[in-house]
Design a protein around this nucleic acid. Structure first.
Lengths: 196, 196
DNA sequence: TTGAAAAACTAATATCCGTTAGTTTTGTGT
DNA sequence: ACACAAAACTAACGGATATTAGTTTTTCAA
């Protein structure tokens, strides 16, 4: 059998992880077998182990790569010299873009993290909790300086995060509507419910 | 081993289905074994088959019961003599209440439906698509009669559905905040982004 | 061209899964 | 108390799973 083809600027391991993300998204982690992943790549299952450590490791890499990207961007936005509304708007748009650009990976991080093994599971949940807290703080800032209505900050954060997650459904309608229209509609819908 | 205890006004099958919903929600359908379900009920795995047909059937019952409840309520709301805004408000609140009252079942219908087997899978997806379409029509009505802004109806529907789904996260915070506060905050957040 | 490293292959293992068959226990109406 | 039905049990099946061991093929630098 021919060698596994890596993308132009990626390792073979990256290629396997990418395909794994697609399958984990489509069928779920537990329902995706290594034989199936191998077949999709064009190789026998045991050959995968020349490049990766284990199935569990694939899930770990996907989940923590996504978590890292979000945390990095949040840090970047926090440090900007903008109004709170501008920051929230930018964060919402980043979420939307991630959803559209690395859909499989974000979906897996959102839905399949529960199959992480310890200590990765606790680690992941801690990171997510911290991310939520920092978003709550952003909303609190906006309320304090009178940019936002006096809504319940934590409820607002979860409403925003969940609404953005709804972009999962839009993968099916990608042709009917542009990314920019989506971004503007959703950001407006969510922000208009908050702004004074 | 003692007999399986049914709830006061339910069959034994209902009791098994209820516990299955809890486990499917917590661990996922594929990751939940019949041996595990049996242990949780206090019985050996084969004993379950005196009361149920198969694992797949458990998932079917959970998913279609939930779908049915939602469709029934949507029909009820459609027939009301209310403004469109009132109808949408009421529908949002129903979603929130379902999420809080039959959390496990709604969660499973939202996340584990992909493990349904044919023809149930297609059936379920058809029902869901129809439900979405009818919500889109509701929004369109509201735009037409000038109650709502000229937003993209389908985007609005998915934003609402996803935001409500965010209540999943609130199971952890149930003690900190009352159902009524949640309901009011989320409904307001989502509606204020739509109303003219 | 050759030789070593990388990566494919085949074969196999132990474990888990849903489910069936056959048997024993339990509960209930007479 | 007894008989019958309901529902528990044990044993076992065939099949899928992730992964390992051992071997052959491929690739590529010298």
């Amino acid at each position: 059998m021919a060698k596994i083809k890596a993308a132009i600027n990626g390792t073979i391991q990256d290629a396997i992880t990418k395909k794994a993300a697609a399958l984990f998204r489509e069928k779920g982690y537990k329902a995706t077998s290594m034989r199936e992943l191998a077949e999709n790549i064009g190789v026998e299952a045991p050959s995968l182990y020349n490049h990766i450590g284990s199935k569990a490791e694939l899930l770990q890499n996907i989940c923590f790569k996504v978590a890292n990207d979000f945390i990095f961007q949040l840090q970047f936005i926090e440090d900007l010299k903008h109004t709170t509304v501008q920051k929230i708007d930018q964060l919402i748009r980043f979420h939307i873009q991630m959803m559209l650009q690395v859909f499989d990976e974000v979906f897996v991080a959102n839905h399949e993290w529960k199959h992480l093994e310890q200590p990765y599971l606790d680690n992941f949940l801690t990171q997510r909790k911290s991310y939520e807290s920092r978003m709550v703080q952003l909303i609190k800032d906006g309320i304090k300086n009178n940019e936002l209505k006096n809504i319940h900050p934590h409820v607002a954060v979860l409403t925003i995060l969940s609404a953005v997650r709804g972009l999962e459904f839009w993968q099916r309608h990608k042709k009917e509507i542009s990314a920019k229209v989506l971004e503007n509609n959703i950001a407006a819908h969510l922000l208009n419910g908050l702004i004074k």
